[in-house]
């Protein structure tokens, strides 16, 4: 369990596997009060040529944020509740160090504005105990906001707050889901269900429809 988490605290869970790529989150993110007009969430196809798998990513709000540590302007601040804020507007010098360092590929450099912006978990909403915009609207609930108990009641799987990038372990306030416990090693590779290797049965052995 994350050192930042309280029992009754609502947690943000991202389960990328069930994303349907509808971009409701992308559209809703721009309606968030702290960055109206700018969408901070990432969502793109993993490899549209091969699959409809999409890749949603919010700021994971690391316990020890790499972005803040590499910021030369000391512009990225973490609140007491563990939320890592967008770069402070007066300080950010738009060097993009955070963009390039973040292990999750989260911060966005707004070039014209000379400023890094990123997901702040809809601080205007979560600070009032309202669900963030993206998790509110997400039709597949790939983005989810609630207590750990509510999650356990509704969904299978284990909540994970640790990621492994080679030797580097990163603990996060935002949680992800896996079938079994244990840190998510990004090098763990990919598995697929049998039919997804060949959705239309093109390579299955002779069957009547395959002739055409």
């Amino acid at each position: 369990m994350s050192p930042l988490a309280r029992r009754d605290e609502k947690v943000f869970v991202i389960d990328q596997s069930r994303c349907i790529g509808c971009k409701a989150c992308v559209q809703a993110c721009a309606e968030c009060g702290t960055h109206r007009g700018h969408s901070m969430i990432h969502l793109e196809f993993a490899d549209r040529g091969a699959s409809t798998q999409t890749v949603p990513m919010v700021c994971m709000h690391c316990a020890d944020p790499t972005c803040a540590e590499v910021c030369p302007a000391d512009a990225i601040k973490q609140n007491e509740d563990g939320i890592v804020q967008s770069a402070l507007k007066p300080r950010c010098i738009a060097c993009a160090s955070c963009v390039l360092a973040c292990p999750f590929g989260v911060p966005k450099l707004m070039v014209e504005m000379n400023q890094m912006m990123k997901c702040d978990m809809c601080y205007d909403r979560t600070s009032l105990d309202l669900a963030p915009m993206c998790a509110s609207v997400c039709p597949s609930q790939a983005l989810w906001f609630g207590t750990r108990e509510e999650f356990a009641d509704a969904r299978p799987g284990v909540l994970i707050d640790e990621f492994l990038f080679g030797r580097q372990s990163v603990r996060t306030k935002v949680l992800t889901v896996a079938r079994e416990d244990g840190p998510l090693d990004v090098a763990s590779g990919r598995t697929a269900r049998a039919w997804q290797d060949d959705p239309f049965g093109l390579e299955e052995s002779a069957w009547p429809g395959n002739a055409r």
Binding site: C22, V26, Q27, A28, E31, A131, S136, V137, P139
Partner: peptide, 22 residues
């Protein structure tokens, strides 16, 4: 001028697709 998720409606409990959002 904008929208807010309608959490109390039992069918969607605040959920919306991009068309609803915009």
């Amino acid at each position: 001028v904008g929208f807010e998720p309608r959490y109390d409606f039992p069918f969607n409990e605040g959920k919306l697709c991009p068309k609803g959002v915009k």
